[in-house]
Structures are given as C-alpha cells and as structure tokens.
Amino acid sequence: EALDLGTCKAKKKNGEPCTQTVNLRDCEYCQYHVQAQYKKLSAKR
C-alpha cells in the first residue's frame, strides 16, 4: 500500500469522516473541503 495515499481528514456536515482518497504528499484534505474552507474564509473579509 502506498504511504502517500490516504483519506481526507475533514468531517462531513453530518459528523462522519470524509471518505475521499487524497495524495497525502499534496494535502491532507480533498478538493471539496479545501474549496469549501477557502470560500468560508474569503467571505469574512
């Protein structure tokens, strides 16, 4: 099993862990959760 392949560390809205696979060398979170957090933070400017 590849060491750099894993699952997203974020949690879904219902509290369950996200099940998307990610490349851990790039980021610990999937694209969906990265974009969601970016939108959330950019709205606070």
Rank of each mutant, 00 (worst) to 15 (best):
T19K: 15
H33P: 01
T19D: 10
P17I: 04
L5G: 05
L41D: 15
G6V: 13
Y32G: 14
V34Y: 06
N14L: 01
S42A: 11
K12C: 00
K9G: 05
A43D: 10
S42N: 14
Q31Y: 04
L41Y: 05
K39S: 13
V34L: 10
K9W: 01
K40L: 06
D26S: 09
V22Y: 02
L3N: 07
T21Q: 08
K40S: 12
Q37G: 14
G6A: 09
K12Q: 10
A43S: 12
K11C: 01
S42Q: 13
P17Q: 12
P17G: 07
T21M: 10
K12D: 10
L24R: 14
T7N: 09
S42G: 12
C18Q: 03
A10V: 04
V22T: 08
Q37N: 14
T19E: 08
K39V: 06
Y38T: 09
K11I: 05
Y38S: 15
N23V: 12
L3D: 02
L41G: 12
C30G: 02
Y29D: 02
Y29C: 06
C18T: 01
C8W: 00
H33Y: 01
N23Y: 07
Q37R: 12
H33L: 01
K9R: 03
C27V: 14
L24M: 10
D26W: 03
K11H: 08
N14W: 00
G6E: 12
K39G: 12
K9Q: 11
Q31V: 07
L41I: 09
L5F: 13
Q37M: 10
A10W: 07
E28H: 07
Y32M: 01
Q35D: 13
A36R: 09
A43H: 06
T19L: 09
L24D: 14
Y32C: 10
V22G: 04
K12N: 14
C27H: 15
K9V: 07
T7S: 07
A2T: 12
A10C: 02
N23G: 11
G15A: 01
L3V: 10
C27A: 13
A43Q: 09
T7P: 03
Q31D: 14
S42F: 05
K40E: 11
V34H: 04
V34Q: 15
T21W: 04
C18I: 01
L5H: 07
Q20I: 04
D4F: 03
A10E: 03
A2E: 08
T7D: 01
A2V: 10
A2Y: 03
E28W: 03
G6P: 06
K9A: 04
L41A: 13
C18P: 01
L24W: 05
R25H: 05
N23T: 13
C8A: 01
D26V: 13
D4E: 07
D4H: 09
L3H: 10
Q35K: 06
C27K: 12
